[in-house]
Amino acid sequence: MSLLALSLTLFLGQLPSPTATPQEAPLVEPAAQQEQAPTLEELERTARELEVKQLRAQVELLQAELEAQQSQQQEDQERLQTMEQREAVVSARAQALEQLRQQRVESLNSGYQWMITTDQLLEEGDFSVGPAITSARQDLSDALANAVQSGQGDAARFIGRALDRISFAEEAVEHRDTITARQHLQNAGYELRLAWRLSIQRSGATLVNQ
């Protein structure tokens, strides 16, 4: 082999191995085709779907607001009913106290009149005052129970003192002690006037809440 052939051989040996023939080379795929533009029908359908979603959201919001409003109305109604019931209880209590007050005033007046009758009999020297004292004690006992039931502690205390004075007067009558008996009746009358002043006052908010 000549030097020229040898050099050519060496030169050819340094070259890269031959690639495939043009017929064997892979085909290059063309660029991806552009996505096809949506049709008018598709655009309209998409718009309708969006509109339906918006309407559904509005309906759900309105339903939530309606439920909240109904819940608030129910709470307001329950609160109103509670207030009405409370007012009814307070009103009934006030009426009951007023009725008791009127009954107490009547009992005090009646008891006081029987005490005046007793004093007049003693002034005339008549010691047959048993029925009058008994009637006075009965009326004042009713007034005392009434005052306790009404929560009128001061009135009850004065009425209790008057009853004690009547008992002292009755003992004095048994001993034919007219002066002492009339003095006890006078003191009892003073106690009853104090109870009467408290009883003629109409029941206020404090008594209604008792």
Rank of each mutant, 00 (worst) to 15 (best):
V90L: 15
D154S: 10
L10C: 05
V173K: 02
T46W: 14
A136C: 00
L80E: 11
E123M: 04
D119A: 14
Q14Y: 08
E24I: 03
W114Q: 10
R45T: 11
Y190M: 13
T180Q: 08
R202T: 14
S107A: 11
L10S: 10
A136D: 00
L80M: 07
E42R: 07
A143C: 02
P131H: 03
G160F: 04
R93L: 05
T82Y: 07
V89P: 01
V129P: 00
T82L: 11
D154Q: 11
A145H: 13
L194Y: 07
S167F: 10
Q183N: 09
T46A: 09
D139P: 03
G153R: 13
E87H: 05
R165S: 12
S2C: 07
S7C: 11
Q183Y: 13
G151H: 00
R86C: 07
A88L: 10
R157W: 05
L121K: 07
G160T: 08
R79F: 02
W196Q: 14
Q54A: 12
L194I: 06
R161K: 05
R48I: 09
S2F: 04
V129T: 12
V129E: 00
Q36L: 13
D76K: 15
R48T: 06
L12K: 09
G153T: 15
L3G: 06
M115F: 01
Q34M: 09
L185V: 02
P18H: 08
T39H: 02
L61Y: 07
A155E: 13
A132N: 08
R93K: 13
H184W: 05
A64S: 09
A32Q: 08
D154C: 00
T19G: 15
G189S: 05
F11Y: 11
V105F: 01
A169C: 04
A64I: 04
V173G: 02
E67V: 03
L192M: 01
Q186R: 11
